[in-house]
Amino acid sequence: MSMLVNKPHHVAHHFASEAQEFESARLGMWVFLVQELLFFGALFVAYGIFRWWHPQMFIEAHHYLSWKMGAFNTVVLIASSFTMVMAIRSAQVNERKPLISYLLLTLLFAGVFLGVKYIEYMEKIHHGLLPGHFFSAQGVSEYLHLFFGIYFTMTGLHGLHILVGMGLLVWLLVRAIRGEFHSEFYTPLEMVGLYWHFVDLVWIFLFPLLYLIG
């Protein structure tokens, strides 16, 4: 790998040292993730309340979801978290080619996840299981549309986070190819990694709560 030239990193003017810069970025990211947690947290509360009010409706509703696709997507996301970690490790040990491959793999897994989600969504649309005014399916339970309102809001916002993550991965990829990441500097990799694990974690809660009720 030594034939590839690493670009040196310049510490921003207002920081005294590289360590201070790195520590600041990491703390900032954690605080940001706490914010994300509260953002999804309110939705989980809404989920809990409506499930408490309409337990039968929730059990009926989850039969319309494919737990197999959900489980597949869970595995895909966990794998992507692993490749993300490996990408950071590759940077830490100055291995640029594996770094690029791992980033590409992560991007690929993210794409697969969204692809499966797309198939699931199309199926719901086909069956009229859309939220709100667009809901046209006939269920046994009253208020079935509420479940799908929550389902689409939660998975939709989660999907949006995946999409943002993919944008960040592309940005990392460009910088990785330019040789900006190496054992001396890999802050953006680590930060996006934290974000990516958070998005995975949200899914790990969403999957059982939405797909595996009852």
């Binding site: 409506f50 939220p131 709100g132 667009f134 549309h145 509420l146 309102g149 929550i150 809001t153």
Partner: peptide, 9 residues
């Protein structure tokens, strides 16, 4: 979402 789609929460 309530106003645009009527999710009902």
């Amino acid at each position: 979402l309530e106003r645009t789609m009527g999710i009902g929460i």
